[in-house]
């Protein structure tokens, strides 16, 4: 037993020694510290999270509002525009509320256990939002596609319209819908990826 204790102590003593060597070495690190410091101070406010969170508002809502006015002028059903805006706003609002609730994940000045716990809960909530959001978006895509396609096809009487502006509008609508779907999918893949990593651990 005593021999074991001696081995453990010797082991820790070695590690302590190596640690002090490491710290002394990093004490001498000057040039890189200065450069990193300058870069960090230059980038005082990171816009990454902000942009990531408000992407639907920045891109989708103006696009949908623009489409609304065109659709109205061309006598197409306007509900897909309204529904698109409402869905985007709902998703952003939910994301905002979740982030506010789990701010420990982003506010790192908290103990390690609490931060890790909040991070896990946050991921679960994000997954729920993602599943709900995906179902909502899928339903929206189907309904919007059906409604506009029938309106455009119906107007020509033979299934196709000769009005190019209507096709442009149709293309824009589909692009907006694809953009929302892509956004939700990419976010989902990231969340699932980190959940799988957590499970592996």
């Amino acid at each position: 037993m005593d021999d074991n204790r001696l081995t453990i102590d010797q082991e820790l003593e070695d590690i302590r020694q190596q640690y002090s060597v490491l710290k002394a070495r990093f004490d001498r690190q000057e040039i890189v510290t200065e450069k990193l410091m300058r870069n960090a101070l230059r980038r005082k406010i990171s816009t990454y999270n902000w942009i990531n969170m408000y992407i639907p508002l920045i891109i989708i809502i103006p696009a949908v509002t623009g489409l609304f006015s065109i659709a109205d002028r061309l006598h197409l059903p306007v509900w897909p525009c309204v529904a698109g805006a409402v869905i985007s706003a709902l998703l952003v609002l939910s994301e905002f509320l979740i982030r506010r609730k789990y701010k420990d994940v982003f506010c790192l000045d908290t103990d390690v256990r609490k931060a890790a716990h909040s991070a896990k809960e946050y991921k679960v909530m994000e997954t729920r939002l993602l599943v709900f959001g995906s179902i909502l978006v899928a339903l929206y895509v189907l309904a919007a596609y059906y409604s506009w396609f029938s309106a455009i096809a119906g107007s020509s009487g033979i299934g196709l319209t000769s009005d190019p502006l209507r096709w442009v509008l149709f293309g824009l609508a589909i692009s907006a819908i694809v953009a929302v779907t892509a956004y939700v999918s990419i976010k989902g893949l990231r969340i699932f990826d980190s959940l799988i990593k957590d499970l592996e651990e």
Partner: peptide
């Protein structure tokens, strides 16, 4: 710990060789 767990897209950083 967060960086290792999430492996998220990291913030824009400067690439440089360390003095040590």
């Amino acid at each position: 710990i967060n960086a290792l767990k999430k492996k998220v897209r990291s913030l824009e950083t400067v690439r440089l060789n360390m003095d040590i």
